[in-house]
């Protein structure tokens, strides 16, 4: 598959995503510049973590106006695969490609640590190789991961199977003490109705090698590859 890792000014997980896709998964990867307006030729676009535009106004609020975002929106609407990780997720929310909004963590502190997340659906391209209830260990690293969505929208999302990951205990129980940031219903990742656009706060690229402490993040990449008919 051909992956494009989008580089916004201030992205800082772009190299990490590139490295994992190329060296760990052996895929074709290129960087996509935020000023580009043509994203044809890619199968999947990755919006990496970081502090696009310094997160100065509000996370993702400036990046959503980058020239590349129009192209990404058309790409997504045409069924292209898009994953936003951390700041990338925040940008997808600001761009309206995913429902909901992000607030500051309830503890008002940046949090970097391994958390456990539970796979809520295996019906998305991103979780097709996982099983429902499977617990993944992956790091979070954010100040604004407190995912918010109103009740009506949430009900609709549930109907469409758009809640993909929830923070949970190591055994897979969703309990308040395992919700690191106050997110509504401990939501850690959501997808579009069609499932081709995923946003998640935990970093799968940081959990893609045993040497980094977890390989659980590989399931996200491998699910997509399998879904697209690539042997992994």
């Amino acid at each position: 598959m051909r992956f494009g890792v989008v580089v916004f000014p201030g992205s800082n997980c772009d190299h990490d995503c590139f490295y994992v896709l190329e060296h760990v998964l052996g895929q074709q990867v290129s960087y996509v510049w935020h000023g580009d307006t043509d994203v044809s030729g890619y199968d999947c676009l990755v919006l990496p973590g970081g502090f696009s535009y310094g997160d100065y106004l509000r996370t993702g609020a400036v990046a959503r106006f980058s020239p590349v975002m129009g192209a990404i929106e058309r790409f997504a609407n045409a069924g292209g695969y898009v994953i936003g990780i951390c700041n990338g997720f925040q940008i997808l929310l600001e761009a309206g490609l995913l429902p909901g909004a992000m607030m500051r963590n309830t503890g008002l502190k940046f949090i970097c640590r391994f958390v456990d997340i539970r796979v809520e659906t295996s019906s998305t391209p991103w979780t097709s190789s996982a099983s429902v209830g499977q617990v993944l260990s992956a790091p979070i690293a954010h100040n604004e991961g407190n995912y918010q969505v109103d009740t009506m929208q949430l009900e609709e999302m549930k109907r469409h199977g758009q809640v993909v990951f929830r923070y949970c205990s190591p055994e897979g129980s969703v309990l308040p003490e395992f919700n690191p940031n106050g997110a509504t219903e401990a939501i850690a990742g959501v997808c579009s109705i069609e499932g081709n656009v995923l946003g998640m706060m935990p970093h799968p690229e940081r959990a893609s090698e045993a040497e980094m402490g977890s390989e659980d993040g590989l399931v996200v990449w491998r699910s997509l590859l399998t879904h697209c008919g690539v042997n992994v």
């Binding site: 990490d16 490295y19 970093h203 940081r206 040497e211 402490g213």
Partner: peptide, 16 residues
């Protein structure tokens, strides 16, 4: 202290 710092970005930190 250290949980407020991103100590993993760049995928090199093999001892936390």
């Amino acid at each position: 202290v250290w949980e407020q710092y991103d100590h993993m970005v760049r995928l090199n930190t093999v001892l936390l």
